[in-house]
């Protein structure tokens, strides 16, 4: 009931200062909460793709199965790259908190480079599969595989685009609360993509290559 009192006290002032524009607190800004909710909906989208992959993964239609296609060491490198980029993205946010522009640029720059490396590897894998005649047209399994992994790749691509825009903003302008908020949202996005990749790594590659 102490809580109720707090609410009542908070209610006393008659004008409301909307703190959403000034706060950069990950857990108080309504913009960041809205973005968090968007990320949740994105997870549902991935869940549907995972479910479809789960249903179709045996429908190889006479084509190759994951066991024949996937090279685990290659994927491990991809995974470690993305994991490291998630870590450097966190360090970039620590620098943002200290308002240390140079460090922000270094760490986000590194994150960007790791993201590009990841994407390059993924595209290499895709090209290789397609050249071997195992494109998404080959079977239900490959359709589901390309769509699931490709959707993740598309998210990484848009994340990189966003990161590029924000990096150029950090170079050109002051660290306004608005900019910090956007950097925070980008970092949430990036961390979440890493989490999604853990499941792609486990369910698609590790289990598929068994």
């Amino acid at each position: 009931m102490k809580r109720m009192k707090v609410v009542a006290e908070a209610a006393l002032p008659t004008t409301v200062v909307d703190d959403s524009e000034t706060t950069v607190d990950q857990f108080r800004s309504k913009t960041i909460f809205g973005f968090w909710l968007y990320l949740m909906t994105d997870c549902v989208l991935f869940a549907v793709l995972f479910a479809t992959y789960g249903v179709l993964h045996n429908n190889i239609s006479g084509g190759p199965s994951g066991h024949e296609l996937f090279s685990l060491p290659f994927v491990l490198v991809e995974t470690l790259l993305l994991l490291t980029s998630s870590f450097t993205c966190g360090l970039a946010m620590l620098a943002t908190q200290r308002a240390d522009k140079k460090q922000i640029l270094i760490w986000f720059g590194l994150t960007f480079a790791l993201g590009v490396a990841f994407l390059t590897l993924e595209l290499t894998e895709f090209t290789k599969l397609i050249h071997e005649g195992n494109s998404w047209r080959a079977s239900g399994f490959l359709s589901a595989f390309f769509t699931l992994v490709g959707t993740h790749g598309l998210h990484i691509t848009s994340g990189l685009l966003w990161m590029g825009v924000l990096i150029s903003k950090v170079v050109r302008q002051d660290l306004t609360p608005g900019l910090i908020k956007r950097l925070t949202m980008l970092s949430l996005f990036w961390h979440l993509l890493d989490i999604v990749w853990i499941f792609i790594f486990t369910i698609v590659y590790l289990i598929g290559a068994r």
Partner: peptide, 14 residues
């Protein structure tokens, strides 16, 4: 308070 943790937490997580 800004919720970005510390270098320690990121390193442990990594």
């Amino acid at each position: 308070a800004a919720g970005h943790g510390s270098i320690r937490s990121y390193t442990i997580g990594f």
